[in-house]
């Protein structure tokens, strides 16, 4: 499912003394099946943008086209509800949305709202809980007995069970320990590849962006500053520094090594790839 944003302007508290323009005449698009990262410092308009993509906010001006559904200034609830079926959203700290008595019931909440029958919803919930490695004997337990990382997995399963074609994830690893961090990030990559869905990741973690995303959209002051391939944007140290973003560790390392004369063929995207690249480089230069 393709999403097109055309001339989107988003103003909070329009026509009051507290008026604030979060997005200004914003145009971009998201192709099906790709992994996108939306980056920019706090207040750049990232979270406003993603809320427009699934109808949580409606444009003040301009349109958001989701497949053949159009979101405009006064779009009806019925259309918005349709959009939510196609575009799923995992909020920051998604474990804060858990409410039901059992893990299974909580995951069924979204599918039921989408109009599925109890049996269908239960089948979906079981499928995605198993996918996330939640054992069947835990399905009947309360989600509140779990650790933070586990609760987050349940919340993510609740969104996946709605089987969206586009999945938006907002800071999915905030507050997680490094091990769970890697598990959660690997999970999104895996479902993107297995189910061929679009992922739109919003994060401050440039290492994650560099490792996982195909394309990057850089925002500042409610405007699109740059968009394009991850390896082009995240290797532009000046661009990142100008926008108060961190340089990915591997990029910094590769650039530092280049100055020393160690030059690789391509740019490794994570530590393991770096190790392979360096090993190859060494083998090549040992001769």
């Amino acid at each position: 499912m393709k999403i097109t944003v055309d001339g989107l302007t988003s103003i909070y508290h329009n026509n009051t003394p507290f008026e604030h323009t979060a997005l200004n005449n914003f145009t971009t698009s998201f192709e099906p099946g790709k992994y996108y990262a939306v980056i920019g410092r706090t207040g750049s308009g990232k979270s406003t943008l993603i809320q427009h993509l699934n109808g949580l906010l409606l444009p003040t001006r301009g349109i958001v086209q989701v497949g053949d559904l159009t979101l405009k200034h006064r779009t009806k609830q019925r259309i918005i509800h349709q959009v939510k079926k196609h575009v799923g959203m995992v909020f920051q700290f998604p474990e804060h949305q858990l409410f039901d008595e059992t893990i299974l019931k909580d995951v069924m909440f979204g599918p039921l709202n989408m109009g599925l029958t109890e049996e269908e919803a239960e089948a979906r919930a079981e499928k995605y809980l198993s996918l996330l490695g939640v054992p069947e004997r835990a399905f009947g337990r309360s989600p509140f007995d779990l650790s933070g990382g586990q609760m987050r997995k349940i919340a993510i399963a609740g969104i996946l069970a709605m089987e969206p074609e586009v999945l938006i994830v907002d800071e999915p690893t905030a507050g997680l320990d490094p091990k769970s961090h890697i598990e959660v990030m690997d999970l999104f990559k895996q479902i993107q590849e297995d189910f061929n869905i679009t992922i739109i990741l919003v994060t401050h973690d440039m290492n994650d962006v560099f490792e996982y995303a195909d394309e990057v959209k850089l925002l500042a002051g409610g405007q699109l500053i740059r968009e394009g391939r991850t390896e082009d944007i995240l290797t532009d140290e000046k661009l990142l520094t100008d926008h108060h973003l961190e340089i990915p560790d591997i990029v910094r390392l590769v650039h530092d090594l280049e100055r020393k004369g160690v030059v690789f063929e391509g740019m490794p995207r994570n530590t393991d790839a770096f190790i392979t690249s360096y090993r190859e480089w060494r083998a090549l230069h040992a001769q």
Binding site: K179, H181, N207, D249, I250, L253, D256, I275, R279
Partner: peptide, 25 residues
Amino acid sequence: LVLPYQMQISRAFLDGRYVTHDELV
């Protein structure tokens, strides 16, 4: 625990001795 990137690389090439980014370079 997850090793910092420079330590993962050090494990592969420098016998896992402790290095900072600059020392690694």
